[in-house]
Amino acid sequence: MASDGVVVEIGKVTGSVGTTVEIPVYFRGVPSKGIANCDFVFRYDPNVLEIIGIDPGDIIVDPNPTKSFDTAIYPDRKIIVFLFAEDSGTGAYAITKDGVFAKIRATVKSSAPGYITFDEVGGFADNDLVEQKVSFIDGGVNVGNATPTKGATPTNTATPTK
């Protein structure tokens, strides 16, 4: 695992066909100046998982989280898009600690492993708008004895992609 920078880890949970599971997305290594904004994309298989919603985690402190935390689910493109932009203008609602960034709610549709993997990152910046190093650890849903650990090695991303 990367020793510096922010680590975004997609949790690994267990479920069975027809059940709804909650998959946490963790941030670790949050910089001392916090995270003022970030955007990134995960990939998944809508034939295996139906993403039914995404909720902000406990490290989102904006009293009205829909102003700073936004997501979009595109089953036709097989992606989930995340956007966080601190909304106070003063840094008061920045992410300042490690913990759960988001909770992905999904219904298991198939007995195949439900991988959720890193696809791309736009950027991560602290309260001074300084770009942060970030790496990703894939996860998803274990169905029966299947284990979604494909790509469990962190993917280092030093520069934003478009």
Rank of each mutant, 00 (worst) to 15 (best):
A85L: 13
E9D: 06
S68I: 14
T155Y: 09
I60V: 09
V134F: 01
I137P: 07
T90E: 02
K12Y: 09
F136L: 03
T14H: 10
D98F: 10
P24N: 10
V61C: 09
V21R: 09
G57M: 13
T161Y: 12
T155P: 10
G151N: 14
D62Q: 15
G114C: 06
T153D: 12
T153R: 07
T149Y: 09
A36K: 00
K97M: 05
C38F: 01
V100F: 13
T96E: 13
D87A: 15
G114H: 09
N127Q: 02
I23S: 08
S3D: 03
T90Y: 15
K12S: 11
D58Q: 08
A85I: 13
S111F: 11
V48A: 09
Y26N: 14
A106P: 07
D128A: 06
S68G: 11
S110T: 11
D58W: 11
F27S: 08
E120F: 04
K162N: 05
P65Q: 09
V108H: 11
I52M: 11
K12Q: 08
T107R: 13
R43M: 04
D58F: 15
E120M: 02
A92S: 06
P154S: 11
L129G: 01
S110W: 11
P148I: 03
G89R: 01
F82E: 02
G5Q: 15
S111Q: 08
S3P: 09
D128C: 04
P63N: 15
P65I: 06
G99C: 06
D4V: 07
Y26V: 04
V17R: 09
Y74G: 00
V21S: 06
P113L: 11
I35F: 03
G18N: 07
C38V: 02
T66I: 13
T107H: 10
K133N: 08
V13T: 06
I80M: 08
F82D: 01
S68H: 15
F124M: 03
T66E: 05
R43Q: 07
G151S: 11
P31S: 11
T96W: 10
L129Q: 02
S111H: 13
K12H: 10
V7R: 07
D4F: 14
I116P: 01
V7M: 15
S110I: 05
D39I: 00
D126S: 04
V134L: 03
A106F: 12
G114W: 04
T117P: 04
D119M: 07
I54W: 01
C38M: 01
V130F: 09
F118C: 07
C38N: 14
P24T: 03
D55G: 14
C38D: 07
T14M: 04
A146P: 13
D87T: 15
I60T: 14
D126R: 02
T159S: 13
C38L: 02
D87W: 15
G34I: 03
P31E: 04
Y74C: 00
D58C: 04
G34L: 06
P75I: 02
A152W: 04
G144Y: 13
G11R: 10
D119E: 03
I54E: 03
E50Q: 05
V30N: 15
I104N: 01
F27V: 05
G53Q: 05
K33E: 02
N156F: 13
F27C: 01
G139A: 12
Y115V: 11
T147M: 07
F101E: 03
E131M: 02
G57F: 15
Y44P: 02
D76C: 01
I10C: 07
F124P: 00
Y26Q: 05
G99I: 09
A72V: 01
D87Y: 15
Y93W: 14
A72P: 00
D70A: 15
T19A: 10
F136Q: 05
K150S: 11
D76W: 02
R28E: 03
D45I: 13
A112H: 11
D126T: 03
Y115F: 03
I60N: 10
N47C: 09
G57L: 13
D45F: 12
G5A: 06
A85V: 14
P56T: 10
N142E: 09
R105W: 05
K109C: 08
S135I: 06
N156T: 10
D45C: 07
A102Q: 03
Y115N: 06
F136E: 05
V143L: 12
I52G: 06
N142G: 08
F40R: 00
P148K: 05
Q132C: 08
Y26G: 04
T66D: 04
V61T: 08
S88H: 07
R43D: 05
K109L: 08
A92E: 09
T96K: 07
A94H: 02
V143H: 12
R28D: 10
G34A: 06
V8C: 15
G29M: 03
R77H: 04
A36E: 01
I23C: 11
P75H: 03
D138R: 10
I59C: 05
V13P: 09
Y74D: 00
I79A: 01
T159G: 09
I59M: 15
V7I: 15
G15C: 04
A106D: 01
V130N: 06
T161E: 15
D58L: 12
A146T: 09
K109Q: 07
D62V: 14
D138Q: 13
T66N: 06
I60D: 07
F40K: 02
T71H: 04
V7Q: 05
I52K: 04
V134H: 02
Y26L: 14
G140M: 15
F124R: 00
I10Y: 04
D39E: 01
G144W: 08
G15E: 13
K103P: 14
D58A: 06
T71V: 02
P113Q: 04
A152S: 10
A158Y: 13
K109E: 04
T147A: 12
T157M: 09
Y44C: 15
E50F: 09
Q132G: 02
T155L: 10
N37P: 00
E86G: 01
I52C: 07
T90G: 15
A36P: 02
F84S: 03
T153Y: 06
P31V: 15
T20E: 07
Q132H: 02
K109W: 06
D70C: 14
T117R: 08
G123P: 00
N142A: 12
T20M: 07
D138C: 05
G139Y: 13
